[in-house]
Amino acid sequence: MYMTKNVLRNLFKKSATRLYPLEKREIFENVRGALDIEIDKCIFCRACQLRCPSQCITVDNKAGTWTLDPMACVVCGVCVAVCPKKCLHIGKQYRAPLLERGLITHQGTPRVPKPKAAATAPVVPAEQNAEAEVQKAAVATPAPVNTEAATPEISETVAEKPVEADISQAAAAAPEAVEKPEATGTEIETNAEQILETPQAESEKTEVKPDDAEQKKEDLSA
């Protein structure tokens, strides 16, 4: 008998559901929506890449890129917990649906070894690992051991160094770093602006590369 009354009541009552795209619900606090990074703070230590259960993050500490596969990310928040610089965070807003699979790349300035005076300065313990990695990188590529520590120089070393790295990537990184030496973070949109200047970079940066992503997955799982 309850259901008959209930059905009749529901006929004349306001609907229990919302007209979704027109009327949106308030988002709860602490909801895990989508992963984002403040690339300025990132030291490319690869802690997030190593701990990610779905292996959706790829960090290139030489080129200074942080790449996310948004469709593989399960938004578990492990990377946020392990990040030593706390530059990763999970926003409340869920990621909008995508029409095709693609990677989101953030371009930062890779860290180069500091000159000797700076290297002896006390280091925050959390930073030490990354510091050691950068030192190792410096041993592997002897080019950037220069005495001047000015930031424009850094960008130049990035531009000159990459014999093995992508030339187009360096081309995209260089003009931006020269224009504004201390601001290093670039979102994917700002990348697009540079792409207008260097058209050959376009295919490298924003194009959907499913084969590449899959290959990366295989490499990592091997």
Binding site: M3, F28, E29, V31, R32, G77
Partner: peptide, 27 residues
């Protein structure tokens, strides 16, 4: 079918608790 939707309407309250406390509805 009306009973089906009545149960799922109750269930939404629990899904909301999950989302508010743990950050996700199911996993």
């Amino acid at each position: 079918e009306s009973l089906f939707l009545a149960f799922w309407k109750v269930r939404e309250r629990i899904m909301d608790i999950m989302e508010a406390t743990a950050g996700n509805r199911v996993v």
